[in-house]
């Protein structure tokens, strides 16, 4: 039996057992996201623009993570709007930084993997590196936006007449609460993947100077930093979107 099939069967089983209908929806959203990621890779391989593919499929994936299986529209719509906003802001930062750092494609450490492959494939790998950065941070942005929006929605239920200014500040406080654990999710998530690479570096006794300029390492570090920055920016932007939205609704009702 295929291991991946058994593992996903096991995951579906525990998800439904613990989460019921919501668990099944989460399982569906996981596979739809994987499908989108695979589609993004296929499209780029077919020479569609990596930036356009990342932006369009990225927004679709944000929607999948945020809307599938969640019921509270105030939370999901606010989170989605804020997440798209963060994605656009990040993209504006990612493009110049990735060009400046020139960490696209592969490094000397990848020589074994690249053996026998043609590298002259006519696809701009700097753009591929930007697309990778966008896609790998999406999940973290969506999750943080949901957490802040959910916290504020709960606050609004308790104090329906709270001022939009105080709502915004409550959003920042919620952000302070979640930031520690979210940073750890990202840290461990990325560093689990770097384990082999780090053993390689220590084993071959790279110096600090070499590490600070190493193409493969810096590529990975930039991914982590973008993800951290994405999460931090999500906090005030979600709070802002929520405050504006509530303010607008009140004005309309008055």
């Amino acid at each position: 039996m295929n291991t991946l099939l058994v593992l996903s069967g096991l995951l579906l089983f525990v998800m439904v057992l613990v989460g019921g209908r919501q668990g099944a929806a989460a399982f569906l959203s996981l596979w739809l996201n994987f499908g989108c990621l695979f589609l993004a890779i296929l499209l780029v391989a077919l020479q569609f623009s990596p930036l356009l593919v990342a932006l369009v499929l990225g927004i679709l994936m944000l929607a999948l993570i945020i809307f599938v299986g969640q019921d509270d529209l105030l939370v999901t719509q606010t989170a989605f709007f804020a997440a798209v906003l963060v994605l656009v802001v990040l993209l504006v930062l990612m493009v110049p930084v990735e060009y400046w750092a020139a960490v696209q494609g592969f490094g000397l450490e990848d020589s074994d993997t690249l053996e026998g492959l043609s590298l002259l494939v006519g696809i701009d790998f700097v753009k591929v590196s930007i697309a990778t950065a966008v896609l790998s941070t999406l999940g973290a942005i969506a999750e943080a936006a949901m957490a802040v929006a959910a916290g504020l929605s709960a606050l609004l239920r308790q104090h329906p007449a709270i001022s939009t200014r105080r709502l915004f500040h409550a959003g920042l406080t919620t952000g302070q609460r979640i930031i520690g654990t979210t940073f750890n999710t990202l840290f461990f998530g990325f560093f689990g993947g770097f384990l082999g690479l780090f053993i390689w570096f220590v084993n071959l006794q790279y110096t600090l100077g070499e590490l600070l300029n190493n193409k493969v390492l810096i590529a990975e570090v930039l991914l982590v930093l973008f993800a951290l920055l994405g999460v931090v920016l999500t906090v005030p932007l979600t709070a802002l979107v929520m405050a504006k939205r509530v303010g607008y609704q009140r004005k309309k009702a008055a």
Binding site: M15, V18, G19, G20, Q22, G23, A25, A26, S29, L30, N33, F34, L37, A40, I41, V44, A45, M61, I65, I66, V68, G69, Q70, Q104, G105, F106, T113, L114, L117, L119, V121, I123, F125, V128, S129, A131, T132, L135, S136, T137, L138, G139, A140, A142, E143, M146, A147, A150, T185, L186, G189, F190, G193, L223, A227
Partner: peptide, 25 residues
């Protein structure tokens, strides 16, 4: 049950998006 879905997606995207350049190649 409301948090677990987004959280698993965070990890999925971190673990799988890294394959992008090699997969394209």
């Amino acid at each position: 049950r409301t948090i677990m879905g987004p959280l698993i997606n965070v990890l999925l995207l971190i673990f799988v998006a890294e394959a992008f350049p090699l997969a394209v190649l």
